[in-house]
Simulated scan of single mutants.
Amino acid sequence: MTMHQAADVSVEAMIEDLRKLVEVESPSRDVDALTASARAVAAVVESRLGGRAVLVESEAGPHVHWSGGGEPRVLILGHHDTVFPLGTLARRPFTVEDGHVTGPGVFDMLGGLVQAVHGLATLADRSGVEILVTADEEVGSGSSRALIEERALACGAVLVFEGAADGGGLKTGRKGCGTFRVSITGRASHAGLEPAAGVNALVEASHQVLRIAELGRPDLGTTVTPTVAAAGTLDNVVPAEATVVVDVRVESTAEKERVEAAFAALTPCLDEARIRVEGAVSRPPMPESASAELFAVARRLLPGIEGRAVGGGSDGNFTAALGVPTLDGLGAVGGGAHADHEYLVIDAMAERAHLVAGLVHAIRDPRGDEPASATGTDAT
């Protein structure tokens, strides 16, 4: 199947569906907002693909699961939570202008979801396809990981609709990533009258930050970055408590294990100070080998498309770690993820939707028979 052989898609219809999703704000951890968002996602899926999209309740909010029936062959994976708090839409409304769509979540990753649905709608036969749209990817996928892994193993191939890499490339590898929290306990005292009677948690934290920063190995792709620190209560009190939050990115399992062991081995520098470390590299690395087979298919469908390894993590890290072929970055072409200038490129929407159809067909029928195009009310 070549890209031009897929049934056409309506860019106008995709933009309208994207508007529906963006205008239901969906900040992570806001269960009420995410419930409304999940219902909106389910409505778009059902209107374009038919069948029933099931809301899978969780403590983080509802996940959306849809199946085209038949033997599972390919999982379309995404998320509907965003990093933007309620009220962002009032300040930065959904806008279509100068070839771009802007608004909270258009690139990460509501645009990708819409493109995936409309691409699937061009196929008359949607059997073997599942869609899973989770509610907590932006905050670690704690409530969805088991479901993601279950469906990935059942399907045997995963297409992840996170936003594209710079220039529209696919994401063929991802670093493993995680967050560590180092909590330090000292002892308070009067900073003027009895400074030596205290155990200064801020000073201890300063020692630990310097140690932690030395754990990075840029030559191996490992970054260890202290990002947030807090200490103290009043300007005349020796601080009794301090915390340091650290972002970690690794390219290999060996580095994951080394960094986790180094955090576990941290010891205080000051007498009587105590340290507690929480966290891990919770998303394992996604090696480029996990995407090689599917990326080769994408290159046949869309010659010249590039593949890039990136530092950010996604739920594709989990599926790749299971040995399930996984290709990421299939979503919107654009940029500005998590930023006020987030945008989606309209001219790329139809091509990306067609790429979905081509990949799904190739996974289900590696012999290369031509697919039947969708007709009737289900076509977009």
Rank of each mutant, 00 (worst) to 15 (best):
E255P: 04
A152N: 14
A265N: 09
H63L: 02
G304A: 05
G335I: 12
D247F: 07
G335E: 06
V333P: 00
A309Y: 01
V281D: 08
H207Y: 11
G198Q: 06
D32C: 00
A38S: 06
A13C: 07
V199D: 09
V199E: 03
E12M: 03
L77A: 12
A43S: 13
G368L: 12
R151T: 02
G78N: 14
V237Q: 09
A309C: 03
L123P: 04
V248C: 07
R276V: 14
E97A: 08
I76R: 00
N200E: 04
V160N: 15
G61H: 13
A90D: 15
G50T: 00
Q208Y: 13
S26P: 00
L330A: 03
L266S: 05
A191S: 15
E138W: 00
V158E: 03
D328E: 05
D235C: 07
G51E: 05
Y343H: 12
D219M: 15
A290L: 12
V158F: 00
L89Q: 11
G311L: 06
V24E: 01
A40M: 12
A42H: 14
D347T: 10
A242F: 01
A372D: 11
P284E: 13
A309S: 10
L270Q: 15
C269R: 15
H100V: 01
S143M: 06
A13M: 08
R39G: 07
E204G: 09
T35A: 12
M349D: 05
E162Y: 01
H207T: 10
D365V: 15
G68I: 03
A6I: 06
A152F: 11
G87N: 08
A298I: 01
S10H: 07
A296C: 01
